[in-house]
Amino acid sequence: MSGAPELPLWAALLVSFLVLAGAVITLIGAVGLLRLPDFYSRTHAPSLGATLGVGCILVGSMITFSVLQSRFLVHELLIATFVTITTPVTLMLLARAALYRDRVERTGSAPETDPEPTELR
């Protein structure tokens, strides 16, 4: 409870809002992980936290440290870049592995062959 840094009021309000918004968005994503009915739907849920959730909290952290040390601190950009690049890789690999397993085991939760391409009208 104690030991939170003493920021100017505007910064404190802005950081509070960003951190709370990020936490709520991440929680909605995690709830989606529980509520959505099948695996492929569930893969959409964590990307909520990995995009806007991470973004909000990182911007909040950037504002805090820039104001505290009164210089421009943007090392959080590293985490942002890193998460943006790695999330597609993990989700794509996981989805392909699940598709492969579902097709081999014929569980019926994935189509046996790709559906016909939808054309642009």
Partner: peptide, 9 residues
């Protein structure tokens, strides 16, 4: 402001 920040965190 530290109070607000501490609570929201």
């Amino acid at each position: 402001s530290a109070m607000i920040l501490a609570w929201s965190l």
